[in-house]
Design a protein around this nucleic acid. Structure first.
Length: 605
RNA sequence: GCGCCUGUAGCUCAGUAGGAUAGAGCGUCGGUUUCCUAAACCGAAGGUCACAGGUUCGAAUCCUGUCAGGCGUACCA
């Protein structure tokens, strides 16, 4: 964002705080005033006001400071306000209650901020972070040779949002799709494929596995019932581990076939994972022995009941005995704990991660606690690398039990998404029957898929949540369609402008002084300038619901504004501001939904 | 037994280093359309924030204990 000399905006905006978050500026100003008054540092604790009658922001830190200094809080507040330099941003601060400082934004400041955001077409005035880190995000991790089911949804989309958030903040994000592409079940699958389709050996690419689920089940049934076949399967496992060329060829084919099944689902979900982000269990297979060797040499890993174990402090089993983190079974085989250790070491040593985020369900919490403890014991993190388990609850059906089909089977992700699109399509057909077929289908996809994703994001990820098509596809409430609708209404205004002789581009290009006439305008403006805070909070806590809550607030404020303030018919003096508010709202919703949540925003709906 | 997660309006859920009178949506009741998409907007009713103590100017939020549900707890992932 650059200002030309003489530009009115440059005179309005003080370069000192340009681009910084409003909440940070206020925090800094009030903290400075407290320091000036008391000679000591106390946090100002500036927050959005609890009630509109208290203004827009309130500083809560005075009471604590007064307490520490054993002085009267209201008196301290008066002294702080006396030296508080904030007249470029706020009206005269007020002191209220036991010692709150209430701040009310000046119209000129809000207007200047809006203009500033308007100039930045890519990032809406949001700066990249000062100190970028290398952040590894481990998410999705589907099993090869099985269809993706609802159990994979949350990790896949929550992880994707976190990756997008960190990337937008300016960090170097490395996505890692830790696919389950190795293990004993592959012996069975390879043996089965060789048996059913011998031509796979000559030309692996010629064989298609139409239904992965069926393929897996058939192979398993044969393995369970046919001892000869089971022996062949075991032999294939050995061949696989020895990198037998023929067996590896068939294995690779199975992996590629699986990818052809799940990659389209990623695309349908607008999940940013690419094949090159895959680094599955097979990648670490030849590094496992070394992990065990190193941990043994360090004296951390010891044999117990025939298995190689590490006993991190503070973990106990049912008998109250130390709980082992088993890295090699008594039969010599390695486990997922071993693979996770190898992956963790790789991410630190080879990917140079500063932070590693694992997005998996809450049931694995203890596993990751132990994994992180072991990594620390082994000295891998060097008190430098941050390890984070971002956990989430289970998806439940409307009966409150884990989400299953009527017959009790797992719900396939593909079918779930198809149903969401079908349901959305029915609504589009009803509400907007005259649109072309193709556009209706495109809207149905955006609304249906968006609804499923958004419903997941909007929930506090720690809780289990009840999956309901009816709720997520509703136009009322905190749903994707509600926000998409707000966006579509703005786009509709833009389309109608020409017919009413309104030159939007011209009016937006010549914006200068703006003044707020209606409360709804200012309310919307106040929310628009806090988008940066919402993003920061969501990224910092890895909680997409902070972002969805913001987008919902914004959309609600827009709907009120839309209802109260005509745009195209507005007086010439008022129209530029309203056009600007519409444009910024549309761009913010679009950025939040599409760029950060991966949810499409149709122009019409 | 131990550990983790959860417990907020009839239902589904928010509540972002402890802040003023705890918020939405659904459902219920009532209102708004010569006007840019009513898939919308406005209003009303509805709460012992599971319970009991504690910490302090102030607790849904922090601490301790209790109760309830879910999950995990030695060779699955």
């Amino acid at each position: 964002m650059r200002f030309r000399r003489g530009d009115i905006r440059a005179t309005i905006i003080d370069h000192f705080y340009r681009m910084k978050k409003l909440s940070d500026i206020l925090e800094q100003r009030v903290s400075q005033a407290i320091r000036k008054t008391t000679g000591q540092d106390f946090p100002a604790i500036v927050r959005a006001a609890a009630d509109p009658k208290f203004g827009d922001y309130q500083a809560n830190g005075i009471m604590a400071a007064a307490k520490a200094l054993r002085t009267n809080p209201r008196k301290l507040a008066e002294q702080v306000v006396a030296v508080l330099e904030i007249e470029d941003i706020c009206q005269t601060p007020e002191i209220a209650g036991p010692g709150f400082i209430n701040l009310r934004l000046k119209d000129e400041f809000l207007a200047a901020r809006l203009l500033e955001i308007n100039i930045d077409k890519e990032r809406l005035g949001i700066e990249k972070i000062d100190t970028p880190q290398t952040v590894v995000v481990d998410y999705s991790g589907p099993n090869i040779a099985k269809q993706m089911h609802v159990g994979h949804l949350r990790s896949t989309i929550i992880g994707d949002c976190i990756a997008r958030l960190y990337e937008f903040e300016g960090h170097r994000v490395i996505r890692q799709n830790h696919i389950g592409d190795w293990g004993t079940q592959f012996g069975m699958l390879i043996a089965y494929l060789k048996k059913q389709n011998p031509q796979v050996l000559q030309d692996p690419a010629s064989v298609r596995i139409a239904d992965l689920e069926q393929f897996y089940q058939d192979a398993k049934r044969l393995s369970d019932n046919d001892e000869t076949f089971a022996a062949t399967a075991r032999a294939e496992v050995v061949k696989l581990h020895n990198h037998d060329q023929q067996t590896i060829g068939v294995w690779r084919h199975i992996v590629e076939e699986s990818r052809r099944h799940y990659q389209p689902i990623y695309e349908q979900l607008s999940v940013t994972l690419k094949p090159e982000d895959e680094r599955g269990e097979s990648f670490y297979a030849d590094k496992l022995a070394d992990v065990v060797k190193q941990l043994r040499e360090q004296g951390l890993a010891v044999e117990s009941e025939g298995a190689v174990c590490i006993f991190p402090e503070g973990f106990f089993n049912k008998e109250g005995q130390p709980l082992p983190f088993i890295i090699q079974k008594s039969d010599g085989a390695f486990l997922y704990a071993t693979t996770d250790l190898a992956a963790l070491r790789f991410r630190i040593d080879q990917l140079h991660a500063d932070k590693i985020i694992y997005v998996t369900d809450a049931r694995q919490a203890q596993h990751f606690q132990m994994l992180f403890a072991v990594a620390k014991m082994a000295g891998w993190t060097q008190d430098r690398v941050e390890l984070l388990h971002v956990m989430f609850g289970t998806m439940l059906g409307e009966d409150g039990k884990p989400f299953k089909t009527r017959t009790g089977g797992t719900v396939k992700l593909k079918e779930l998404l198809e149903e969401a699109v079908d349901r959305a399509r029915r609504v589009v057909d009803e509400k907007n029957p005259d649109l072309p077929q193709e556009q209706k289908q495109q809207i149905a996809r955006a609304v249906g898929i968006g609804a499923v994703k958004y419903a997941d994001y909007a929930n506090n990820r720690n809780s289990d949540y009840v999956f309901s098509f009816d709720k997520m596809l509703a136009m009322e409430g905190n749903t994707a369609p509600y926000m998409q609708y707000a966006y579509a209404r703005i786009k509709s205004i833009e389309r109608k402008a020409a017919g009413k002789d309104v030159d939007i581009e011209g009016e937006l290009a010549n914006l200068a002084a703006l003044s707020f006439a209606e409360p709804a305008e200012k309310e919307l403006a106040k929310i628009l300038v806090t988008y940066d805070q919402a993003i920061q909070a969501a990224a910092q806590e890895c909680r997409p619901n902070y972002l969805t809550a913001y987008l919902y607030d914004l959309s609600q404020a827009f709907s009120r504004f839309y209802n109260a303030c005509p745009v195209l018919q507005a007086q010439a003096s008022q129209r530029p501001l309203r056009l600007l508010l519409c444009d910024l709202t549309a761009r913010t919703i679009r950025h939040g939904l599409k760029n950060l949540l991966g949810i499409d925003v149709p122009e019409k709906m």
